[in-house]
């Protein structure tokens, strides 16, 4: 199916916080209580509509264990959006946010939109991290913030879509250079204005011309 833009997302955060479950809920609208372990990286894709335009999200779901950081670092490249996930029932996953953020900032392009997600909001009785703490952390570091539940699907759509809205706004404001694929944005095959300029950029092929 034709799309106006393709955004690359990366999902990061400690192991076991529910990254793969969030992705599965977003792409397949289902929850798997015991999800397979992610080794390396897995992928998902879905089409959304923003401002009447079809946008394809290409989502990279990474392994969370610290040992894999050196590998996942190379996947930040060319991501337009990142979902940084922690588990509201495990404080250590919240404590590690700073190092995740450092990593993300260092290895991605500076305009990458980062959405902070406190997942497992359905487990209120086991909560270890207050919602206000997540909000404060997000405010301090200039991130968007949401609490989600991959289990009940609460805020899952919103988390992925609001990130895309933010990216879309940045494109409108001219912050993102959409002709530079390193920004994690590709222009769809039928886009009206930029086809001529695109061919001159980046030298390499652009997968945006492919199907969805």
């Amino acid at each position: 199916m034709a799309y106006a833009y393709l955004f690359k997302y990366i999902i990061i955060g400690d192991t076991g916080v529910g990254k793969s479950c969030l992705l599965l809920q977003f792409t397949d609208k289902r929850f798997q209580p015991v999800h397979d372990l992610t080794i390396g990286v897995e992928f998902g894709a879905r089409m959304i509509t923003i401002d009447g335009k079809q946008i394809k999200l290409q989502i990279w779901d990474t392994a969370g264990q610290e040992s894999f950081r050196s590998i996942t670092r190379s996947y930040y490249r060319g991501a337009a959006g990142a979902l940084l996930v922690y588990d509201i029932t495990r404080r250590d996953t919240f404590n590690h946010l700073t190092t995740w953020l450092e990593d993300a900032r260092q290895h991605s392009n500076s305009n990458m939109v980062i959405m902070l997600i406190g997942n497992k909001s359905d487990l209120e009785s086991r909560r270890e991290v207050k919602k206000e703490e997540g909000e404060a952390f997000a405010r301090e570091h200039g991130l968007i913030f949401m609490e989600t539940s991959a289990k009940t699907a609460s805020n899952v759509e919103e988390a992925f879509i609001n990130t895309a809205k933010e990216i879309y706004e940045k494109i409108q404001e001219g912050v993102f250079d959409i002709n530079n694929e390193a920004n994690g944005i590709k222009i769809g095959p039928q886009h009206p204005t930029t086809n001529s300029t695109l061919s001159g950029s980046q030298g390499g092929q652009h997968a945006g011309g492919g199907c969805c």
């Binding site: 897995e42 894709a45 290409q58 492919g210």
Partner: peptide
């Protein structure tokens, strides 16, 4: 294309 190959192989 890229995303389908990546999904297929994983």
């Amino acid at each position: 294309d890229f995303i389908h190959i990546a999904q297929f192989l994983t």
